[in-house]
Design a protein around this nucleic acid. Structure first.
Length: 281
DNA sequence: TGCAGTGTTGCTTC
DNA sequence: CGAAGCAACACTGC
């Protein structure tokens, strides 16, 4: 589940590996990814992260937007394309099952390829001019980036919400970049109950929460992200954050602070993990 | 065996 | 307008 640290890892990889390369061919096997065809002939002048979106700058006028949603990840390597059949060649990691749901491939002028593996095909691809992409309603609605938001902005936006703080942290229109994994860990680190209403947080709680966000995301980025299920970097390798995670998917295990048993509950259709003893009320 | 659970986002409905 | 519920998918685990 790519969130900010995973998307940033991917974007940094791509800038290192494919910046300056021209796209000489595009292949896809699913109608919703057909926009990749229009990228053919363009040169990748850079790659940027916007919230959890990946923006390929094509020349100085166009953009290709890729959202990985839940199970999507971008890989750089070589495949053999035989009609609808894709055979992974190199690196060896591409042969792993999780990397074997390729639905589009961009072939570059040096023979390297960018492949998109997405088991559930929830991913999104849009091609357009800079103006067209920047005017997409979904991008316009995004709140400030979780790494860049200052305390004043953060407090003002969070306080307005009438949902729980857990749901508010994951709401991309409030601040962008945080999903379920890091929302869980951030709330645990700040000793805040996920069920507390955002509008009821005190100034001190908001301050604590705000200054907890960045260190958790940075720590995850340094570990190259979380790979509990599908996420892989562009070499097809796992991130290491899962091993040091604080509460996410630790139901039934003991709290790293107080040894109480970690619980899991449903909140707005998602699983929130928390310590009932040291995360307030 | 079959069906609920998984989690991001957009659309529909109220 | 905000919030809840569902759909987009396919595989895993009970």
């Amino acid at each position: 589940m790519p969130e900010l640290p995973e998307v940033q890892t991917t974007v940094d990889d791509l800038n290192r590996k494919v910046r300056g390369r021209r796209i000489v061919a595009a292949w896809h096997d699913w109608p919703k990814f057909k926009a990749v065809e229009k990228a053919k002939g363009h040169t990748i002048s850079g790659v940027r992260r916007l919230a959890k979106n990946i923006l390929f700058h094509l020349g100085d006028s166009h953009l290709l937007l890729v959202h990985q949603k839940m199970t999507g990840h971008l890989l750089v390597g070589k495949w053999q394309i035989e009609g609808r059949k894709i055979i992974p060649l190199a690196p060896a990691e591409l042969k792993e099952k999780v990397n074997n749901y390729i639905h589009f491939i961009l072939t570059l002028d040096n023979g390297q390829m960018i492949g998109f593996s997405d088991l559930r095909k929830f991913g999104k691809v849009v091609f357009g001019t800079k103006e067209e992409i920047e005017d997409l309603p979904d991008l316009k609605k995004l709140g400030p980036d979780a790494l860049a938001v200052n305390y004043r902005q953060f407090a003002e936006r969070v306080r307005k919400r009438r949902k729980t703080i857990y749901q508010t942290l994951m709401d991309q229109t409030v601040i962008s970049g945080i999903g379920n994994i890091y929302a869980n860990d951030i709330l645990w680190q700040a000793r805040l109950s996920p069920f507390k209403l955002a509008s009821r947080l005190t100034g001190a709680e908001l301050k604590l929460l705000h200054r907890t966000i960045k260190p958790i995301l940075v720590k995850a980025f340094k570990a190259r992200g979380t790979s509990i299920d599908d996420y892989r970097d562009t070499a097809g390798k796992k991130g290491r954050y899962a091993a040091s995670r604080l509460v996410y998917q630790r139901e039934g295990e003991s709290c790293r602070r107080c040894r109480a048993t970690i619980l899991r509950k449903k909140q707005g259709g998602r699983s929130v993990h928390y310590c009932p003893k040291c995360q307030g009320r």
